[in-house]
């Protein structure tokens, strides 16, 4: 009887750490990077590397300056950097991208207490700052020379009403204008399937997000609802940004509500708004209500007494 171990919870531990999860996310992001090199050229590699390095450096300097434990080893800053780089056009000046990285890490993440404490997705905050600061550079979409039809003259979202279903293969390959990481749907889906298979993310958010975008775009009378979910940043956002652990709900029910809300706002902005794309605002707005979603969808203990 001496072999009983008495300890406090948690009693079940897994080998999974923040670092291994982030490594999985980085791996899942790689197909999109490879695709973007073929579509936009090698400069995408430079932007991605600089962005990731800048994020890590910002986090390191902040923690060093405040004599906090150094957390750059968990690779979350690398993920933020890669995601932000995926959100800029290939022609983006490097120094502007670094401004965005600093805003993402210092303002959105470290000021609120570092990893696990940010109330918004840092990469998306960085994108918003870049969007408002350098609007012309951020919307200077470069168009790959390989493409010859309608998609070569504008991003698919701006000409969605002129397209038909025959444009679907080209959207899947991603050979059209846009920011570097969002165009190739096949690569993004590949990464998404990998993350779901590795159980890094639950499919609840991506599926409910894409489904809601499809549904509401159709309900609001937007052009080509099916093409709509394969164009713009919604796929990148649904798979990689909306699923961020810190800023998405805990429970499956909560995740479904979160995805539904994101899809609804995306469709509203796309169909009725002045902006072509509403993914960033949709995810950030839903980030803000995550604490309430968590409160309202809390799992009740089996047989637990309900409060009166």
């Amino acid at each position: 009887m001496n072999e009983l171990t008495v300890s406090v919870s948690p009693h079940i531990r897994s080998a999974r750490t923040t670092r291994s999860i982030m490594l999985d996310v980085i791996l899942a992001l790689m197909p999109a990077l490879v695709a973007s090199v073929f579509i936009f050229g090698a400069r995408t590699l430079l932007l991605t590397a600089v962005s990731a390095a800048a994020c890590v450096l910002c986090e390191y300097l902040w923690e060093k300056g405040h004599k906090m434990p150094i957390t750059i080893g968990d690779l979350s800053a690398v993920v933020t950097g890669i995601l932000l780089a995926y959100n800029v056009p290939v022609s983006m000046p490097v120094w502007q991208l670094i401004v965005g990285d600093a805003a993402a890490i210092l303002v959105a993440k470290m000021l609120f207490g570092g990893i696990g404490c940010n109330f918004m997705n840092p990469a998306l905050v960085g994108r918003i700052v870049l969007m408002f600061s350098f609007t012309s550079e951020m919307t200077a979409y470069v168009f790959p020379k390989t493409s010859i039809d309608a998609l070569s003259s504008a991003t698919p979202l701006t000409v969605l009403d002129k397209l038909d279903m025959s444009a679907l293969p080209q959207l899947l390959y991603g050979v059209h204008g846009g920011v570097i990481g969002e165009t190739c749907m096949i690569a993004l889906l590949l990464g998404g399937v990998y993350l779901v298979a590795r159980k890094v993310i639950s499919p609840a958010i991506p599926l409910s997000y894409l489904g809601a975008t499809l549904l509401f775009t159709w309900l609001f009378g937007g052009a080509q609802p099916i093409l709509a979910i394969f164009s713009g940043g919604v796929m990148l956002g649904a798979i990689f940004m909306a699923t961020d652990y810190v800023t998405s709900p805990f429970t499956t029910k909560g995740k479904l509500i979160f995805g539904l809300g994101c899809g609804f706002i995306t469709a509203v902005i796309r169909v009725f708004g002045n902006y072509n794309e509403g993914v960033t605002f949709a995810i950030l707005l839903m980030n803000l209500v995550v604490p309430y979603i968590n409160d309202l969808t809390m799992t009740k203990p089996l047989g637990g007494v309900t409060e009166k």
Binding site: V99, V107, V129, F132, S133, F134, T135
Partner: peptide
């Protein structure tokens, strides 16, 4: 070389 968001409302609050 301007960071325009600083002149806008969010920059003001910041």
């Amino acid at each position: 070389y301007q960071i325009r968001i600083i002149t806008q409302t969010p920059g003001g609050f910041f």
